[in-house]
């Protein structure tokens, strides 16, 4: 991936934020979804040649799906560890790649599912529950 795509990072998050606000989604939910999306699109920009982000808004929850055909994640335990990063130097010099992306996505989601196959790509589903529908739980495992 080249540093070019990184210039667009945040474009999806801010657009999603506007959509959710217009739909009257609770501000705290909007903020958490915004953070998750920002981290997710940063990863797509740094590590892949592109991917798809899907937003689904329900009465009781907001869901974000990230899917890419990138290099995949070799070690799913390591990537969840704060500070672990394989980001190239150019990304660090642009203020990215501190190794908090996946941990921060996971922390802001009520349910977080990460599936990745090295060489094939990565898929993530992050759910944020609305109004008192909070439910904790996450999983990360190989294969999809």
């Amino acid at each position: 991936m080249s540093p070019g795509a990184i210039a667009d990072v945040g474009a999806v998050s801010t657009q999603i934020r506007r959509i959710l606000r217009e739909l009257g989604v609770e501000p705290e939910v909007v903020r958490r979804v915004g953070i998750i999306c920002f981290e997710g699109e940063t990863n797509i920009a740094i590590f892949t040649k592109g991917g798809r982000i899907t937003l689904m808004v329900w009465d009781d929850r907001v869901e974000l799906f990230f899917a890419d055909n990138g290099p995949g994640i070799e070690d799913l335990e390591l990537v969840r560890r704060p500070g672990y990063s394989t980001a190239p130097d150019w990304a660090r010099e642009l203020g990215f790649g501190a190794g908090m992306g996946i941990p921060n996505m996971e922390k802001n989601a009520d349910t977080f599912v990460l599936r990745s196959r090295p060489g094939k790509g990565t898929a993530i589903r992050a759910t944020v529950w609305r109004k008192g529908n909070e439910r904790q739980g996450s999983s990360a495992g190989p294969g999809a």
């Binding site: 945040g10 998050s13 801010t14 915004g34 920002f38 203020g95």
Partner: peptide, 13 residues
Amino acid sequence: VTLQAVRVAEVMN
């Protein structure tokens, strides 16, 4: 001074 810095500020209110 990047666009991302402004977008982060926006997302974070």
